[in-house]
């Protein structure tokens, strides 16, 4: 399982970087989505994959009776997913504004020379 997820992480990162390097903003935003998901899987894998029960302790006991899985990486990923959700919503709005103002999706059509 760890090996499959590691390969998946690599593939996602590769796809993300390829997309980020494109000139089209839509593809760039897709790249950011991929990058976010790749990172989430990375956090999940590097937190250690254990086959164990959820982190609950039975009533009246001080410690868990059996081996429990580490809940922290999942909590981290959950937070990261929520944040990237907001970021993607913003990026899409920004892309729409960019298209409305410049009339293009291609980043190279807008250069710094426009400033002068």
């Amino acid at each position: 399982m760890g090996l499959i997820l590691s390969i998946l992480t690599g593939v996602l990162y590769a796809a993300a970087i390829y997309l980020l390097l494109r000139r089209s903003i839509v593809k760039m935003i897709l790249g950011i989505i991929f990058l976010g998901n790749a990172t989430n899987v990375l956090v999940f894998v590097s937190g250690g994959l254990t086959k164990a029960s959820p982190a609950f302790i039975a009533e009246g006991q001080q410690v868990a009776a059996e081996h429990i899985a580490d809940p922290l990486p999942q909590a981290l990923i959950l937070t990261a997913i929520v944040i990237s959700f907001g970021i993607i919503a913003f990026s899409l709005a920004l892309m729409y504004r960019f298209y409305k103002i410049t009339g293009t999706d291609d980043l190279d059509d807008v250069t710094e020379e426009d400033e002068v």
Partner: peptide
Amino acid sequence: RQQMNGAIKYVAMNLVASMLFLAGIG
């Protein structure tokens, strides 16, 4: 027009940096 150009670069770079940061945390 040029503000959009700068903004896209700024947003993209910062998001990439955030993701690297998160990968580092993992």
